[in-house]
Amino acid sequence: MTARSWRFASTYVIMPRENVDTDQIIPARFLTTTDRQGLGPHAFHDWRYRPDGSKNPDFVLNRLESRGAQVLVAGNNFGCGSSREHAVWALAGAGFRAVISSEFADIFRGNALVNGLLPIEVAPEILARLIANDAAGEHVVVDLETQTLTLPDGDEVRFPIPTFSRYSLLNDTDEMTFLLDASPSIGA
């Protein structure tokens, strides 16, 4: 078994803040790594931990019911700010496979897609419904093939994903191969 399944059910974590910037997702002081791995424990570090290093019990990721959730539901304009791909690596490292919001910042969206973290854009009403819901124990189902998100009440919504990214993820090919194929026609 090689390829990951692109249909999965998961509990989800609600972070209703808007404009969550990449400095919050992974503070700059953790960017001195030369690896893609190992950033998961630092995701949302300054919200997750108090200045003395202890866990902030009020922060959603520290709650028991957040364990094992592969889907993050966040307020509008998620991932704004810096281009650091480390933000995506940190979210993936923390176990997330999808983020649901009503809008994503451009660079974050691109970074997420190349790494197989699905940026699921839904209408503001759908986002509001998810946020208003008590997430504990509830599941959503994400299906990349059909581009559908099934809400806890069974309603299905379609989400946009660039055709090329969807194809690349489902077929486990990558953009580098496509680019190398497209670029020999030009001189350096």
Binding site: S83, R84, E85, H86, V88, I107, G110, N111, V114, N115, E175, M176, L179, L180, A182, S183, I186, A188
Partner: peptide
Amino acid sequence: IGTSQVAHVLASQC
């Protein structure tokens, strides 16, 4: 651009 794209540009200039 993100780091994956940095690799793209290094390798393909595109």
